[in-house]
Design a binder for these strands. Structure first.
Length: 173
DNA sequence: CCCTGATTCGC
DNA sequence: GCGAATCAGG
């Protein structure tokens, strides 16, 4: 939708009335950014700005500009993106390598689990314990199920039923 | 997290 | 001119 005189008028009115950009945006059916951008272009009263760029330390355009340009290019261009992705030869290997941990694929709901201390999973070879996560990872209460696993599976029978969802089950649910 | 407005820049 | 992405403060 374009900025018709009426809409601009409305924008001015609401902006002048002290409404927030997102609020005005809702009213006019546009995004907050659109409102702010238009207001800026119209030179409307630059109301109390939350932040100020370059107010104190000034000049730091290059970095921001580069990032923006990069982001822009990344989303817009069909090409662009081949940079390193894997095999980073230099540090920064913060990847926790989740691999095929208990959290890997199954269970859609609580997959939020990060690569937590997934160590206690196997402890004793004689009787594997169910690696089904219980509770919120990161909290003290977090633990794994610990029941005897189904041979060849990382979970107990009960949790295998939950972990391995079939298409049919999914549709039934 | 949510919110805010400001700025940049591809379109 | 437009506005998404990004930034940066509350």
């Amino acid at each position: 939708m374009s900025w018709t005189p009426e809409r601009i008028e409305e924008l001015k009115r609401l902006w002048d009335a002290g409404h927030s950009a997102s609020e005005i945006g809702k009213q006019l059916g546009v995004s907050k950014n659109a409102v702010v951008g238009k207001a800026h272009r119209l030179k409307l009263a630059a109301r109390p700005s939350p932040i100020k760029r370059g107010g104190s330390t000034a000049r730091r355009r290059p970095a921001a500009a580069q990032r923006q340009a990069a982001a822009r290019a990344a989303t817009a261009s069909p090409f662009v993106s081949p940079p390193v992705a894997s095999g980073a030869s230099n540090g920064a290997s913060s990847g926790k390598a989740v691999s095929a941990s208990p959290f890997a694929a199954p269970e859609p709901e609580r997959v939020r689990a990060r690569a937590r201390p997934a160590r206690p999973v196997r402890r004793s070879l004689g009787s594997q314990t169910c690696a089904w996560p219980i509770g919120d990872p990161g909290t003290a209460e977090f633990r794994f199920c610990g029941e005897q696993t189904v041979p060849g599976k990382p979970y107990c029978a009960e949790h295998c039923a939950l972990a391995y969802i079939t298409k049919k089950k999914e549709e039934a649910a």
